[in-house]
């Protein structure tokens, strides 16, 4: 026989903090593995990288002396500045190109392909995302080489080991992501808006440009940001398709790594991180700013 009572506490003594927290801890413990794992293997290494960027390299050994040399070198040595600006330009133009290429595709897929076939095509273009990035860049090398497919097919262009080559490789990689983002945004446009526009006499072109396009601004910003980040931070395409010429920022980092100048590489990497965070902030300001306007 059990009686039940729920009510105010009889005695004034409140149970200890431990007793009160125990129920929450028994659940919280299950978050610990992921929390700690990412802390140890991601957050700490990154923090270490920041720290490392302030250390010095003397006689091929890293010493923990604090110095700003690594950073001041960036400004004094014009190589770095040039590489930085080149990378910036390349990344920015890649972002624009990715958006330009993906928009018509996403539009066509979202509005002119039968709904039943859409997931299939999505899957087709998404598949390459999960295959080895390295292998795909290598495959591009095959295609772009002087005796590769493009040249053999009649177009006598030198594409390998040029910036254009790098661009092609990278675009083929992240266009898929941008297409997916834009497609999702387009599908979220309320059909009533389209009907209303058509009802008021708009041509398909006007509907696309004036109704659908504005609604995808956020997706465009995110997609562009992705392309930017992936281009700026890439070193695989740069080395494979660019032929080791160190005129891009990521190649500079590689160079520093090759000569074991870890502090130097670290400082460049931090610069890269800051650049990417800035790009992140700008992209969101752009996207959200336009939305509320």
């Amino acid at each position: 026989m059990s009686g039940v009572a729920v009510g105010r506490r009889a005695s004034t003594a409140r149970p200890s903090l431990w007793v009160r927290l125990k129920p929450r801890l028994s659940v919280g413990a299950w978050a610990a593995p992921a929390l700690i794992w990412q802390l140890v293997f991601a957050a700490v290494p990154l923090a270490l990288l920041v720290l490392m960027s302030f250390w010095t390299l003397s006689e091929y050994q890293v010493s923990k002396e604090f110095t700003l040399d690594n950073y001041s070198r960036l400004f004094s040595d014009s190589i770095y500045l040039q590489a930085y600006l080149r990378s910036l330009l390349l990344s920015f133009t890649n972002a624009l190109l990715a958006i330009l290429i993906s928009l018509p595709f996403a539009y066509a897929l979202a509005f002119h392909v039968k709904p039943r076939r859409q997931p299939l095509i999505l899957l087709i273009i998404a598949l390459p995302l999960f295959t080895s990035y390295l292998m795909r860049m290598y495959a591009w090398q095959t295609v772009l080489a002087d005796n590769g497919v493009v040249n053999a097919a009649g177009l006598h262009v030198k594409l390998l080991f040029t910036e254009t080559g790098i661009r092609l490789g990278l675009l083929s990689y992240f266009c898929t992501i941008v297409i997916l983002l834009l497609y999702t945004a387009m599908r979220l446009v309320p059909p009533e808006l389209l009907e209303a526009a058509r009802n008021l006499g708009a041509t398909e072109r006007q509907v696309a440009l004036r109704v659908i396009l504005p609604q995808t601004k956020l997706a465009m910003a995110i997609g562009g940001l992705f392309a930017f980040i992936l281009t700026f931070g890439d070193f695989v395409a740069t080395s494979i398709l660019g032929g080791g010429q160190a005129y891009l920022f990521s190649a500079q980092i590689l160079d520093q790594v090759r000569i074991s100048n870890w502090p130097g590489a670290a400082s460049l990497a931090i610069v890269m991180l800051i650049t990417l965070l800035l790009a992140f902030a700008i992209a969101f300001r752009l996207a959200l700013g336009k939305r509320t306007a």
Partner: peptide, 16 residues
């Protein structure tokens, strides 16, 4: 958040 729960006279407020 405050108060107690009793079962058969036993304070089970913080019992899991």
């Amino acid at each position: 958040t405050s108060g107690q729960v009793l079962l058969n006279g036993n304070d089970v407020t913080y019992v899991s």
